[in-house]
Nucleic acid binder design. Structure first.
Lengths: 216, 216
DNA sequence: ATACTATTGTTATATAATTAACAAGGAGTA
DNA sequence: TACTCCTTGTTAATTATATAACAATAGTAT
């Protein structure tokens, strides 16, 4: 059993979604139990790290047996707050907003998409994945009425600042930011910045690196 | 000056795109020079880390002056291989594929989108962002003829395995994988896995964490 | 020209993260 | 039930990363 007072490192938190996804796969395959060793081989991390990671939250296994997949899946889901039924809105019904709205993974992970907003009259009223795009002017009212937890930002550059301000004022608890700019907010609102071009740049580096290795 | 023989840690590579983006902003603002200290404040990292990071590649600044923004931007771009004009294809013209194809950031970072492919007859022939969607059956021929460097995978679950195999056989050097499964390939092909639901899960954790802080 | 200031590159130190090791204790088996 | 074998939780050792410190040096002002 672990002492909750020591904060869980960020690197550990970042690994949890990966464990979660993988355990979901095992569940689908109807696998009941797994050892840290078996997981380690499949996921390409060390068994030691897996045990260490889980131990930050108290440990979920049993000596001589391993981990019950379903139980572990549920626990990690709880830790991540996926069973809280957090609701979200998407601001910006452009290509990316549309893609995310149609992305079933979000719902599969326990999030509820409550609404999509845009400011373009041509887009307002159109239907995406069964949901009508609403006027961004109604955003505040909608968010507070429905107690929306998360705002997903997929608006163009120029609109970011205003959008963020309005979302925060409306009382969202977290922002998933796909816009170019790195957001950092006060301590009341959580932020996760996603930059789609970053992994492409990293990939580019890796390609170059491999090329050089081959030359040497 | 630095010894190239010691491999640059992964964490450093992961930070380079962020520096690059930020320097791009400074360039837009017509800022000519910047010190590690000033950058540090704006980017919320330590000045020491910035100097240390740049030093892995030999250091790009001058004592008493700082860094020339344009020069540094160019150098980091070179390191990342952004000036190599890598070409890419997108496989899967669903919502996400469409969104990425319309995403101007990729082109802005120096990548060239050479083509988009799909296997759905209803989609083949439609135009996305000025490009006609091609039949996935022509993929191999297209890739080798145009010496395509990068394959972006946005196909549904069932099609991933086959798509990957065909891309690799066609000779792409890197894969940007948006599919559910974690890819790991042989040493000839670089891979970067992107899981859009991961940051949402992390955000969920952060929200929960903040809630608990406030309760205590 | 000279002195002063700013800021790097780089080395040393401290902190964090990962891996290894192993005792403790269930699970499986006879 | 008793014995053996697994596999965890946890502590210890190692490795990696981040921060701090500072000498070297170019820029700037006088």
């Amino acid at each position: 059993m672990n002492d909750k007072s020591k904060k869980v490192p960020d690197v550990v938190i970042k690994r949890l979604p990966r464990y979660y996804r993988y355990l979901g796969e095992l569940l689908n395959q109807d696998i009941k139990r797994i050892s840290s060793n078996a997981l380690s081989e499949k996921m390409n991390v060390t068994a030691s790290q897996i045990r260490q990671d889980f131990n930050y939250f108290g440990g979920f296994g049993q000596q001589g047996y391993g981990y019950n997949v379903e139980y572990l899946y549920g626990e990690i889901g709880d830790i991540l707050g996926l069973n809280d039924g957090d609701t979200m809105v998407i601001i910006g019904a452009g290509n990316l907003g549309k893609a995310l709205a149609s992305h079933d993974t979000f719902e599969k992970r326990g999030f509820k998409l409550a609404g999509i907003f845009d400011n373009n009259p041509d887009v307002i009223g159109t239907v995406i994945n069964g949901r009508e795009v609403m006027d961004v002017d109604c955003m505040e009212e909608f968010i507070s009425r429905n107690r929306v937890d998360i705002g997903v930002i997929t608006v163009p550059r120029g609109a970011v600042e205003e959008t963020v301000e309005r979302l925060v004022k409306s009382g969202v608890k977290g922002l998933l930011n796909f816009s170019y700019m790195e957001l950092k907010l006060g301590k009341d609102v959580a932020v996760e910045n996603v930059h789609l071009s970053d992994p492409l740049m990293t990939l580019s580096y890796k390609i170059k690196e491999k090329k050089q290795e081959n030359e040497v």
